[in-house]
Write a protein that binds this DNA or RNA. Structure first.
Lengths: 111, 111
DNA sequence: CTTCAGGTACGATGCAAGTCGTACTTGAAG
DNA sequence: CTTCAAGTACGACTTGCATCGTACCTGAAG
C-alpha cells in the first residue's frame, strides 16, 4: 500500500543542464506544464496526461523527469504516482515553473 | 562597415522548446551565462568566450542561439558581433536569464 | 595584387536520445 | 488458482545533434 518513493537528486543537487535537457522534450514539457498549472500539487496517475506515445516511452520520460529532480515517482507495484517537486524547484530555480505557462509562441491573439 | 544583423525570430515568436533546447548544451549555456552576467549588454566578439571547440562548431552554436532568438549576430564580413537580446527575452520569458546565474549544483564548498 | 585571420558551407562521423516490440513482474479482482 | 491491467527491463531501430575536416568566402593589412 504505502508505496516507496523512487530516488532522485536532493534539492541542492539539481543541475540546470539536466533540467533544461528534461524540459527540451515536448512531451516532458507538456507534463511539467500540466503539473505546474495545478496549484494543489496532488498526486496524479501517470496515465492521466494523455500522452500520444507508448507506455514504454512514457516510462522513459518519467524516469528522465525524476532523475532531473523535477518530479517524485511513487511505486505501488502495479501502478505509479507522480508528484511535482514544486518546493525544491522553486528553492533552487525560482521562477522556472512560471515560465512553463508562457504558452505557445505568438498566441492567436495579435492584440 | 555597418554590418548587417542576421535574422532571428521576433520577440513574440520565441518558442520555449527552442529556448530550452538551446540552453541544454553546456557550451551554449556558458555563453548565455556570461552574456546575462554583463548588465551593460555590450556587443562582444565571438572569440571572446574561450570555448574549447573548433570554430566550425562555434559557428553552429551561435546559429542555434540566434535561431532560438536569444542573441543577435551582426555580420561584418570577416568578423562577427554577438549581442544578448535581453529585453526580448525578459518580455516573453521573465526570469529566465536570472536562472542562468544559479550556478553549479551543490558546490563542493559546504561552507 | 598577395597574404592572412575570422567566419561560413558542406559533408562525414560518432554518440546520445526518442520510440517501440517482446517478454517479464506486480498487485488486484474473479 | 487464473486473469488482467499497469508498469518495467532489454534490445533494436531511427533520428537528432555535437563535432570536426576540407574547402571556400570576406575584408583588412602589406
Amino acid at each position: 500500500m504505502a508505496g516507496r518513493n523512487l530516488g532522485g537528486p536532493k534539492a541542492d543537487a539539481l543541475d540546470l543542464g539536466a533540467v533544461f535537457r528534461a524540459l527540451a522534450d515536448e512531451h516532458r514539457r507538456s507534463v511539467m506544464t500540466e503539473l505546474a498549472a495545478d496549484r494543489s500539487d496532488s498526486e496524479r496517475g501517470c496515465n492521466s496526461f494523455d500522452l500520444p506515445i507508448s507506455k514504454q516511452t512514457q516510462t522513459h520520460h518519467f524516469r528522465v523527469l525524476r532523475e532531473a529532480g523535477l518530479i517524485d515517482e511513487i511505486d505501488y507495484g502495479n501502478r505509479k504516482g507522480i508528484r511535482l517537486r514544486r518546493a525544491d524547484i522553486e528553492k533552487r530555480f525560482p521562477g522556472l515553473l512560471a515560465l512553463l505557462g508562457a504558452g505557445p509562441p505568438a498566441d492567436t491573439a495579435p492584440r
